[in-house]
Amino acid sequence: MNRLDAIRRIVPLLGDAAVVSNLGRNTYDLYEASDRPENFYMWGAMGSTSSVGLGIAMAQPARRVVVLDGDGSMLMSLGCLATVAAYRPANLILVVLDNETYETTGGQATHSGRCADLEAVARGAGLAHTATVTTVDDFAAALGRALRDPGPWFILAKVEQATSFARVPRRPIFIKDRFMAALGTTAG
């Protein structure tokens, strides 16, 4: 499935869910599909995206939190899957948009295309609610269920590389301030 098509398809399902996107193409495609104030765009910290989602989910248990991580970033920090499984925030949905490459750095292969089954890794880490999807329809169905039923969820979405070069504003503090205002957490 095309990643931009996949993200466009799930946008109408999101409601007021917070969405955290991994640096690089996930951030570009989420921005192009729908620039919502509840989107938190990562510009750095590869390997930390799912953990940022975990922190938001634990602080905001009444709100759904969707992470759009990448296969390269997930492989960098597999330990965080065990942490998510240990604390089981029911409102957290980890999505790995797996194109089997480090697309932003030039398309080098990741191990997820060679040998590593990230859904099996997530299950092995202790996550009970997992899925692998390869079509836009199945992705939308899996995410819709995850937005309805208690998690935490892990959805491995196999996508093709390619697509957008959206001009996402590289303004970290603006992104943070807008996101926190949308969540009503600015008072700090």
């Binding site: 955290v20 953990s51 634990m58 330990g79």
Partner: peptide, 20 residues
């Protein structure tokens, strides 16, 4: 939250700040 790596703890605590 007991984390597997300190970088994960930094990111988790940062996420919690975003969440209030």
């Amino acid at each position: 939250v007991c984390c597997t790596r300190e970088e994960e703890a930094v990111a988790t605590v940062a996420g919690a700040y975003l969440g209030g």
